[in-house]
């Protein structure tokens, strides 16, 4: 059973043995002395002199530095970014959701100076516990009010906490994913460093012209 194949296999595994590991450590990664010094922004000697305790920890393998995950801006994640100002309560998202987990209750309400009459949201609940993040709701939203988020940590001990309500959506940090929102990609928007708090800055997918709006809301009434 001895041939050249086995030794070649051993060489391949040995070659991989000396390779740098591909593991991505999360949420932080262990570093040695050099890594800790680099993180602190000084050379190792200076680091040992300046911060002896930290350097001992680093040598003992206990020092960690946080890791920023490399994710695509299109990542369809948690924490939907929702701009209530833009929502007309048309419930397209609820209709397009394959699982029917978006619950919308609306009342006829406010009048937007620009866009005219709209509906006020009473309830806008997304049951994230059942959500599969397909993004069809975001794709369906004609006014770009709903965006996918970029986070992925939302573990709780109680299922009810997985229902995201309107208040939570409004309060959440607005880091919209560029999934189905090409305007973010055109502006080279990075959802991992920037936030878009104002719905005007979030850009419009297909914004009707002023004439159209006037025709629709004033002339034809």
């Amino acid at each position: 059973m001895i041939g050249l194949g086995l030794p070649r296999g051993f060489l391949v595994t040995l070659k991989n043995f000396v390779r740098a590991p591909v593991t991505v450590q999360y949420p932080d990664r262990h570093v040695g002395l050099f890594g800790a010094a680099k993180e602190a922004g000084m050379n190792p000697f200076r680091f040992v002199v300046k911060r002896p305790v930290d350097s001992i920890k680093a040598i003992a393998g206990l020092a960690t530095v946080p890791v920023a995950l490399e994710q695509s801006p299109r990542f369809r994640g948690n924490e939907f970014t929702f701009y209530e100002d833009r929502c007309t309560a048309c419930a397209s998202c609820a209709k397009y959701c394959p699982l029917g987990i978006i619950e919308i209750v609306s009342v006829p309400g406010k009048i937007d100076a620009q866009e005219g009459e709209s509906y006020k949201l009473e309830v806008f609940d997304i049951d994230i516990g059942r959500c599969m993040f397909c993004g069809l709701c975001v794709e369906a939203c004609p006014y770009d009010a709903l965006h996918m988020g970029t986070k992925f940590e939302r573990s709780t001990y109680v299922r009810d906490e997985l229902i995201v309500t309107l208040d939570e959506l409004n309060a959440a940090e607005k880091k919209p994913s560029s999934f189905y929102r090409p305007q973010f990609e055109e502006n080279a928007f990075d959802p991992y460093t920037e936030t878009v708090d104002d719905h005007y800055d979030a850009g419009r997918h297909e914004r009707p012209s002023d004439e159209d709006l006037k025709k629709k809301w004033v002339d034809e009434r």
Binding site: T13, N16, F17, R19, A20, P21, V22, T23, Q25
Partner: peptide
């Protein structure tokens, strides 16, 4: 094992 499999 980790190192042979390019893990940590």
């Amino acid at each position: 094992f980790g190192r042979f499999q390019t893990r940590t």
